[in-house]
Design a protein around this nucleic acid. Structure first.
Length: 174
DNA sequence: GCCAACGTTGGC
DNA sequence: GCCAACGTTGGC
């Protein structure tokens, strides 16, 4: 009979559905920008230096294949500037063990690591950054942690709805 | 450079 | 385990 590939796809899709989780990762562009990541070897870099327990726990929740918004903070125009993919499982952050590192923490040891990181790879840089001031104007993401007063976390979970609402803002740009 | 909002530290 | 002092984050 007539093949209905659309319907078949709907039936079989859930079986192969990838459960991807979304995040937002902050970086000060003067320290490490999305262009730095794009220029890195294999466009991939460890995301080191996270020194906050809640953010650390989010890192530990990350899985290979998750996506994250790359956010530029502490700069003239704070904004989401692109997308990265998580390409490693969480593993101990060795910068905590280097005494000359700004991220040195004597309480973290190789035997008992306190801080973790993942490797991220460059996926895309938006033609126009999605500015924080514009995110604040979008009622669909009014609950987004990034926009909450007093938020200081450098790693944030992003719901699928928030992810899509934010991506939709790109198409509204000109 | 200011300052609100947290997180961390350490004395008690 | 409380909490004051201090440090940090990050928008403005």
């Amino acid at each position: 009979m007539v093949h209905d590939w659309g319907e078949r796809e709907q039936v079989t899709m859930p079986k192969f559905k990838v459960e991807r989780v979304y995040w937002l990762m902050k970086s000060e562009p003067e320290a490490f920008s999305i262009d730095d990541l794009a220029k890195a070897k294999n466009k991939t870099s460890p995301w080191d230096g996270v020194r906050n327990y809640k953010a650390r726990n989010y890192i530990k929740d990350m899985k290979i294949g998750d996506y994250a918004f790359f956010y530029h903070s502490s700069c003239k125009l704070p904004a989401i500037v692109g997308i990265v993919e998580i390409v490693s499982s969480p593993y101990p952050d060795p910068s905590a063990w280097r005494e000359n590192s700004p991220y040195f923490d004597p309480k973290s040891t190789p035997a008992n690591p306190r801080w973790f990181m993942v490797d991220v790879t460059f996926k895309k840089k938006f033609k126009e950054p999605i500015l924080l001031q514009d995110l604040r104007q979008n009622p669909k993401i009014s609950d987004f942690t990034l926009l909450k007063k007093g938020n200081r976390l450098s790693i944030l979970p992003v719901t699928q709805q928030q992810w899509q609402s934010i991506l939709a803002m790109i198409h509204e740009q000109n």
